[in-house]
């Protein structure tokens, strides 16, 4: 029953669209004309290479503009130099005797402190 109803509805739609198609019998532009106009346009389109070059140039301009806009100014550079040169007033308090040992890299096989013995060497006559 459901299927019959569906088919009847489809038939109705087919009839409706057929009527629409009949009403659409307007003039169709001749194939030869449309094809010839398209053929005449073939050379006028910019090639992909040109597009690629144009895109690359535009990208380069954007990159240069961004670099120029974000380049540090003279006053920024002076401030950065001052910041690097700054030392804390209490930095001297952090220095303790013997901190050279802590800063230096010890070499393998060498003692940090040298001890000298008072005993004479065994082979001494």
């Amino acid at each position: 029953m459901d299927r019959m109803k569906r088919e009847a509805n489809d038939d109705q739609l087919r009839r409706i669209f057929a009527e629409l198609r009949q009403g659409d019998q307007g003039p169709v532009p001749p194939f030869e004309r449309v094809w010839a106009t398209a053929a005449a346009r073939t050379g006028r389109r910019p090639s992909r290479v040109r597009w690629a070059v144009a895109t690359a140039c535009a990208a380069a301009v954007v990159v240069v503009a961004v670099i120029l806009l974000h380049r540090p100014s003279g006053s920024d550079f002076a401030a950065a130099t001052q910041l690097v040169a700054w030392r804390s007033p209490t930095a001297a308090l952090l220095r303790v005797p013997g901190d050279d040992i802590l800063r230096a890299v010890p070499s393998i096989g060498a003692a940090l402190m040298r001890f000298e013995t008072l005993q004479p060497a065994a082979d001494t006559p």
């Binding site: 532009p29 449309v34 094809w35 106009t37 398209a38 053929a39 346009r41 073939t42 389109r45």
Partner: peptide, 9 residues
Amino acid sequence: LQTVYLKIL
């Protein structure tokens, strides 16, 4: 349609 034919060509 003209553009379509152009694409084909």
